[in-house]
Amino acid sequence: MTLLEITDLQTQFETSEGRVHAVDGVNLSLEANESLGIIGESGSGKTTIAKSIVRLLPDNGEIVDGEVRYDGDDITEYSDRQLRKQIRWNEIAVIPQNAMNGFDPVYTVGDQIVEVITAHTDTPNDEAMERAKSLFQTLGIDEDRVHDYPHQFSGGMAQRAMIALALALDPSLLIADEPTTALDVMIQDRILHRIQELQDELDTAMIFITHDMSVVSETCDKIAVVYGGRIVEFADTETIIKNPRHPYTLGLRNAFPSIMTDDQDLVSIPGTPPPLLEPDEGCRFAPRCPFAEERCWSETPQSEPYGDGNTIECHRADEHERIRPEASKSETWREQEEVIEADD
């Protein structure tokens, strides 16, 4: 059953320099219990996609077009009140990047869990506190610590407490926006594992945002690759890891050692992310793409299906058998780097 279906989502920010097209026609779908990874470079629009779903955009941001269907209902049409009562935290909960700042510093963590439970249900305070304690146990935190203030927690512990808060109302969808980047590697791994286990146990769907391909490859069923506010490739994890078709995905893959197929040196994609102010026609990746042709510069590639429910946006998608081996060579990208430098 499809839990979340996003069609042609467009979110823009009004700035003094013009309108930033941060999300520019995104399509995504997610089944119940499924986990989806969203991956892309910094500034590609990952966070904006997440915030558009729960409509938590800053004052200067607005959803200008598209639908976000949750359980079949377009929630972009919901009133603020409806969204608050029916969707936020009941259905969709969020785990932020830096948990320490996600808690209000002047209340205990337990009180904050109680607050959200009592705001949405008729649960009496003491029962809600029991629930907070049991959530703490689930996450491996001593239950007495519900009475502690956020600043008394270590980073990893705060992140677990944040997850406890997110699970307070048994949401059907968890959105975790780089939930572990603020933590050190050891703790990151442990928390990621725990999140994965919980997701299985609790039958929750999940959107996992990161710029670390190795993280999503372990945690997610499907992966969406975002570039310049668009989903350039969307496929099951195995396909994205083993047989991706988009040159950008191929390039990203080279930057992470654990999933590399060939034993070559790490190479990152040369060049910088595209400007998002009033984008022109043409493929946004063209300036950095080693496989760009004439038409890549003038025609915007459209989303094409392939395989079992996968999509791709690239004029040369059909040539993937030939492109893939090329793209896994580091020289291909080094040469492109020289081309870019020569242009400057």
Partner: peptide, 26 residues
């Protein structure tokens, strides 16, 4: 501007609660 205000909004608390219980209190 603090992150926790956004989380409190995401929690679906009433805006007046976010304003008075959290923003004002801090």
């Amino acid at each position: 501007n603090a992150d926790f205000i956004e989380i409190k909004k995401a929690e679906g608390l009433h805006p007046w609660n976010v304003l008075y219980k959290h923003a004002v209190r801090n």
